[in-house]
Amino acid sequence: MVSDRLAIETVDLWKRYDGIDALRGLDLQVPTGSICGFLGRNGAGKTTTIKVLLGMAKATRGVARLLGAPAVDAEVRRRVGFVSDEKDLYDYMTVDEIIAFTRPFFPKWRTDLEQKYRQKFELPGPRDIKDLSRGTRTKLALLLALCRSADLLILDEPTAGLDPAMAEDVLQALVGHVASEEMTVFFSSHQIAEVDQIADHIAIVDRGRMVVAGALDDLRDRFQRVQLVFADAAPEVRFHAPGVVRVTRDGRVLTVLTREREPLMTEAKALLPASIEVSPVTLKEIFLESVRTED
């Protein structure tokens, strides 16, 4: 069944809030076992997607599935961990109390991991949550998500507002956890560098729709910048090859940004340029180009 291979799946997902379509036919597929980075501009629909997946908001139309089950099913959340972007927990409880509160909901709670992360994150047991710094609250939220033996972890901007050292701690905890426990991670982020670092899949959403999605290595392979230098003025040419994102003409230089290197190379060579240079495109550029071309 397709659903077994997909930890998260949405098909033609629409969500309307007060007359505004936050999601407009979103198709998302997150393969089981992957670490998937979810990128998009502010207001593109990242948080809305996550809310629909976790049953916090109801889809206006379309399908949303988590681990094969409908997103509105409360029971599937027993296998899912979540860290929100606000990382707000119960202010009036202490660290110990919120762990004690969360534990009984998850029969597969790992007390060994709880001990490990309490120490590793240096969480002060009797301290009130309202007295914790943002970084410590993030680590606490992470502990609460990681100890439940979840099959899927969903994080909304996990390192937002954290200094680089804390951010690295969080990423390391994630990567370390994924290395030893089988799980899928789906995290939204504005930090392209961290997505580059730990994700093996990405999904870029813009204005409520998916614009780029797939394995990161694959995308890096196929997305290329091809620079053609001509002896005389560069020709004005319309490329027929699929996947051409942007063509810039500057004197004798034609620069083509493409998602599909191979078809373009064939066409480019036929133009008989003086030289062809191919250079890789960074994820940042892939992102910027993908969300800009819709303008």
């Binding site: 076992g33 992957s34 670490i35 690295e168 990423l171 390391q172 990567v175 370390g176 994924v178 290395a179 030893s180 670092q197 730990i198 994700a199 093996d200 290595d217």
Partner: peptide, 18 residues
């Protein structure tokens, strides 16, 4: 080990495996 490499370099374990 793959796990160790992933954790120390803070990169995706699948990447190390690959």
């Amino acid at each position: 080990g793959m796990r160790k490499v992933a954790e120390e370099l803070v990169i995706n374990p699948n990447t190390v495996a690959k």
